[in-house]
Structure formats: structure tokens, C-alpha cells
Simulated assay, not measured.
Amino acid sequence: MRKRARSLARRPSQANIIAGFLLIGWGGKEALESGTLITNSDFRKILVGTSDSLRTQVLWQLRQWAFGNEDQLCERVLPFLHDVWPRHRALKTPLLSSHLVELALNSGDLFPDVVVAILPRLVPIRGGHLRIALDVGDERHLARRFPSSMLELLWAILADDVSQWPYKATDILGLLETAPETVADPRLSELRRRRAQY
């Protein structure tokens, strides 16, 4: 499996298949019942030694399986982020940050815990790497339910240059401006200042 993962730089089309095998071997029901086939350490080494195509596919499939219709790996998301996802500085990139943020934005009730887990791995996201396309009119919007966690996330990913902010970021700031938990936070004031100068 490690050899296959390393070869993905030459064959990125196989990333989807390899990502599925890795996740099932690490956290699938059968693997957990019979003894994990891929350990945290093994999975982490594979992620360190492979390409971004596999890393992003692993995050995408984890998101689909944990928070999509299948709901197979929901209880494994936090262990994955704490024990598997690498902490290497070289992997703190806008691309990988955007995929980690998308995982958080789809995590529902786990959102605050996922944000805490991914914050040390995030860098500002520039350009088209991320769209925060969440309906701000929805009463269950994450910024309404967890304003402090949303502000933590935005503070970590919003660049100094407002033109590089993800789509809908300013709408979410508007929600945070009405939340008692965040309205007086100096980080929100700084983000509003940046927006006003743009």
C-alpha cells in the first residue's frame, strides 16, 4: 500500500481507490472488529510520503463517509485528526487547509471539536481554494450555533488581502457581528477593519 501511495505522483487517477482502501483498513467497521489493518502510525507515514492528490482524496472520502449518507466513519473523524493527520510544516498549505476546513464545515455538531483539531494545521487560504457556500439565512448555520468556533476558523484562514477571501466570508462576518459571544472580540474587529479598507 505504501508503494502504491508513493507512486501516485505518477498515477493520480488511482488516488480515489487507494484513499478508500486506506480509510476502510484503518477505520472501517470490519477492520475495527477484526483488529485495525492499518495503524495510526502507518497511515500517517503514508500521508507524509505521498502526493496531495491522495491526501485530498482521503479528506474528501472521510468527509463523505462521516457526514454524508453513509455515516460510516463519523466517530472516527476526531481520532483521525488527532492521531493520523500529519503535523508536518510542509503539509500546512492553502490546498490542504481548504480541505480540512471543508471537513469542518460539514461536521455538524462536531464542528467545535473539529475546529480545535485542525487549527494548528491551517494557513490562510487564498483565491479559489475554498467556497464557504453556507446559507446565512439558515437558523442552523454554524456561525449562529457556534460563533466562537467560526471566528477561530475564520481568523486562521482569512488572508490579509480581502480580495483573496473565500466566497461568502463577509456574509459570515455579518452573522458574527450579531452574536453576543463574538461581537466584542478584537479578532472580529480586525477582520471588519480589513473588510472596510478593501
Score class of each variant (00 low, 15 high):
Arg2Asn: 08
Ala5Pro: 08
Ala5Glu: 02
Ser7Met: 15
Ile18Met: 00
Ala19Ser: 05
Ala19Gly: 04
Phe21Tyr: 12
Leu22Trp: 03
Leu22Pro: 10
Gly25Thr: 04
Gly28Trp: 02
Glu30Arg: 14
Leu32Lys: 14
Glu33Met: 11
Gly35Ala: 07
Asn40Asp: 15
Asp42Leu: 14
Lys45Ala: 08
Thr50Trp: 02
Ser51Lys: 05
Gln64His: 10
Trp65Phe: 13
Ala66Tyr: 04
Phe67Trp: 10
Gly68Phe: 04
Asn69Gln: 14
Glu70Gly: 08
Leu73Gln: 00
Cys74Ser: 15
Val77Lys: 01
Pro86Cys: 07
Leu91Thr: 08
Leu95Trp: 00
Phe111Asp: 10
Val116Pro: 03
Arg121Trp: 03
Pro124His: 04
Arg126Gly: 11
Arg126Lys: 14
His129Ser: 12
His141Pro: 07
Leu142Gly: 02
Leu142Arg: 06
Ala143Phe: 05
Ser148Thr: 06
Leu153Phe: 02
Trp155Asp: 11
Trp155Glu: 13
Ala156Tyr: 00
Ser163Trp: 03
Ala169His: 03
Leu173Val: 15
Gly174Thr: 14
Thr178Leu: 11
Thr178Arg: 13
Thr178Cys: 12
Ala179Thr: 09
Val183Ser: 08
Ala184Arg: 11
Arg187Cys: 05
Leu188Ile: 10
Glu190Leu: 13
Arg192Tyr: 03
Arg195Pro: 00
Ala196Phe: 08
Gln197Ser: 11
Tyr198Glu: 10
